[in-house]
């Protein structure tokens, strides 16, 4: 009987502690809801209205989403966003991994290379995009000038005017800027690896590739996973780079979801339409965030 009373008391105490914990968290929950939750829910509501800047929001049901289904530019922008994200992430991961492995070796001038390779990440995005735009210019851009002077091409490549090239041109800049993030994240992970494992593997006759494949890669996989997921979310939402280099053009050939959202909101003054474009990709981002949260939990 006494034992039962003890258990009941312990249970009551646990419930009290939980209640206290919740109560202590309440201020933070209120702040987070006010800063993020309310605007998010409001945005979803507005996507079901005919809201324009400064105007009343009248409920229009699924009209905005139905319009999106029939909007060719929306589908083109979504396709471009997926190509942009997958292409950039693959390139950044491969090149970042390669450079991290190289910089982890005892090479001459390692500090210099590490510093130099950080520069693209440190440069403000606007400066980088504007500079690349100048470099891509078909008339006075340095890239075409170098290609022609070295005999690689006879005429300039239309980096910014050929609809088959414009998205690729913006991807190059994103990859250039994003490699340092991958490189330094992976390099950090590489430096925590125990050298004895490699020595033991060497004694057992494992070559460089096998050491990399069976020891290095599994050991750094969680860091690669989190870095890739974070960068995927950032790349998916990248507006500045595309907008400043091509403006999403010509004829929407490099339009992505963020640039199309901007065009709808500020060029067409269609706020609810713009929000519906942004809201339509939230499921994709939620999936990525869930994967990230799980990977983070696993790694910790």
């Amino acid at each position: 009987m006494a034992a039962l009373t003890k258990i009941n008391r312990a249970g009551a105490q646990t419930r009290k502690d939980k209640r206290l914990g919740l109560l202590l968290m309440l201020p933070v929950i209120i702040v987070i809801f006010g800063v993020m939750g309310y605007p998010f829910l409001n945005a979803i509501w507005l996507s079901f209205t005919d809201k324009v800047v400064g105007g009343e929001a009248n409920f229009t049901g699924w009209d905005n989403y139905i319009a999106l289904i029939h909007d060719d530019i929306y589908w083109l922008s979504l396709k471009n966003t997926i190509i942009y994200t997958v292409g950039c992430i693959a390139a950044k991961l491969l090149l970042g991994l390669l450079l991290a492995v190289l910089l982890n070796k005892s090479i001459k001038g390692k500090t210099f290379f590490r510093t130099a390779l950080l520069i693209p990440w440190a440069i403000p995005g606007m400066v980088a995009a504007t500079t690349w735009r100048w470099m891509y210019d078909s008339t006075y851009g340095i890239i075409n000038s170098l290609l022609i002077s070295t005999g690689l091409t006879t005429t300039g490549i239309p980096w910014l005017s050929d609809t088959h090239l414009t998205l690729f041109s913006t991807m190059i800049v994103n990859v250039w800027r994003g490699i340092p993030f991958f490189m330094f994240s992976i390099l950090g992970a590489l430096q925590t690896l125990d050298k004895q494992q490699f020595e033991a593997a060497c004694v057992d006759g494992a070559g460089s590739f096998k050491q990399f494949w069976y020891i290095t890669l599994p050991a750094i996989s969680s860091v690669i996973g989190i870095t890739t997921l974070l960068s995927t979310i950032w790349t998916f939402n990248d507006f500045e780079n595309v907008w400043l280099i091509t403006g999403g053009g010509p004829v929407y050939s490099s339009s992505t979801i963020p640039t199309y959202t901007y065009v709808k909101a500020f060029t067409e003054n269609n706020l609810s339409g713009a929000i519906s474009v942004a809201v339509s990709v939230i499921p994709i981002l939620i999936i990525l965030i869930i994967i990230y949260a799980r990977a983070n939990k696993k790694s910790s």
């Binding site: 210019d137 078909s138 008339t139 910014l160 005017s161 403006g247 053009g249 010509p250 004829v251």
Partner: peptide, 9 residues
């Protein structure tokens, strides 16, 4: 006209 003019602002 320069080819890039199709994306000029």
């Amino acid at each position: 006209v320069p080819p890039d003019a199709t994306t000029w602002d």
